[in-house]
Each structure stands twice: as structure tokens, then as C-alpha cells.
Amino acid sequence: MLGYALRRLAGAVPTIFVVITAAFFLMRIAPGGPFDQERTLEGQVMENLNAAFGLSDPLWRQYLTYLGNLLQGDMGPSFIYRDFTVGTLLKAGLPVSVTLGSLALLLAFLVGGALGVVAALRQNSAVDHLVVTVATFGITVPNFVVAPVLSLVFGVWLDVLPAGGWQTGHLAPMVLPVVTLALPQVAVVARLIRGAMLEALTSDHVRTARAYGLPARLVVGVHALRAALLPVVSYLGPAAAALLTGSVVVESIFGIPGIGRYFVQGALNRDYTLVMGTVVVVAVFIVVFNLVVDLLYAVIDPRVRYD
């Protein structure tokens, strides 16, 4: 298993390399440059700036330089946040995004799982219909609607929670962002678990468990739920990668200093290094969580063997 994990990680290196390369060149062939925003920079000033950031070198050399620096852990200076390096920015933002994301993930798993199980056990009851409707709602309503509405209702009208802002270590400002992030995931997990449970509950081996007089707690908890976890695990892997790397919507509406917004800001302002930095982080998260999914799968399902 350990060998498999290491091999998989090694195998992911080319993937990340391809992603970095594609992102690098796509970014560069896009029209515009990082200093276009600053109106009427004189030609000489512009050239000086470009030279200072190494943008006047041929593209292939810039690429090689970037790769070389990246290998040494240097992601270069940011073009829009002039006083910071990309590394500093990401180091400051990542813990915030990861904190919010993992809380949301936990909430999604626990609440979504519980809702899904209850709905499946009471299929076609009022509870089931309620869960299905709420889940459809959660999947349907986009976070850029949920975030301002929550902020309006709880932050402005009821005034029970901060409408925005961030203080490291304080719980209150996290509530609304975490709920916003978790809501669609709760919905998806609930639906996945419900569907998988319904299938598991009608499967032959659950019938066997019932035929052998096992109490409901064992039938549901051991024999049905374990099988029903498999689709959730494979869904939550990529979802975790996305959640932990921040959300531009949630961060901009609640004013949270995560890394989600860097990506959009960077791309729009042609902050090449910032965009590349976020791409690298996201790609690494995706690769790692895909691996985690595969390993978890093997733990739950003995039919899956890695060697």
C-alpha cells in the first residue's frame, strides 16, 4: 500500500508538469500584460518594468527560469501585490482557506450523511421528500446567491453574526462562510448517500443480514452504510480539493483573506506568477486527494487491491 502510494505520487509529477506547462503558455499567449492597467506608462518605464520582472526574455527562457525557481520553492514576485512574493501571499492565505474548507467538509459529511441515511430508511415518507427537496435546493442555489442572502439576513437584518470580516482564531466570522461553502456539499452528500443506501438496502447481502435476525443497527450501520460510503468517498475527493483551495465568491463577499480570490484577480490582471502559484497549489491538492480517495477505497472495499 505504501509502495503504491509512493508510485502514484511519482506518477502524478508528469500530470502536474503538464498542467503547469499548459497554464504557463496559455496565460502568456492571452492578450494583454501585467502592466496594461496602469494607464499611459511611458515606453521606457514599461520596458524597464518588463526587464525587471524578466518579461523581456524569450518565452522559453522565462518558462525554464520559472520551472527552475519553482523547483527551489520560489514562485516569484507578485505583479499586482508589488510588495509581496507569491509564496508569501499563498502562505498567508492557504491556512485560512484550508480551515474554512475542512470545517465545511466535515459539516457536509456529518450533516449530509445523516440526512441521506434518514431519508433512505424512510423512503417516500414526508421526511424523505423534505430531504430530497432541501438537497435539490442546496445543489441548485448558487453560492453567490447564498452568501449575500445569508449575510443580509443574519448579518444585517437579524444582526446575530458578523456579515463579513475575518479574525484568526475567532469562530463567529467563520459561521456564515462555512455554511455557504458546506451547503451544496451537504446536499450532494445527502443525495449520494440516500441513493447508495437505497440500493444497498435492497441488495442480497443486506437481505441476508436481515434474514439472520441482525438488529437494525448492524444491518444499517455495518452492512448497508459501508457499501453506501463508496460513492461518497469518490465524490468527496475532488470536492475536498476544491473546497480547501478557497472560493472566490465566498472570500469576496465575506471579506476573507483566503487564496480563492487570487486566482481570478491574478488572471484578470495578468499577474502571471500569482496565477501560476495558485494553479500549482490547486493541481497538487487535486492529485493528493485523488490518491487519498483511492487509498480510502481500498480500505473500505477489500476487492480493490493495489500492489
Binding site: T208, R226, A227, P302, R303
Partner: peptide, 12 residues
């Protein structure tokens, strides 16, 4: 039962 494959829990 008829199907010994599916009648046993594949995960235990």
C-alpha cells in the same frame, strides 16, 4: 440463497 456471491457482504 441462490446467489452465494451477492448474498454475502462483499466488504466483510
Amino acid at each position: 440463497f441462490q446467489e452465494p456471491m451477492t448474498s454475502l457482504d462483499p466488504l466483510q
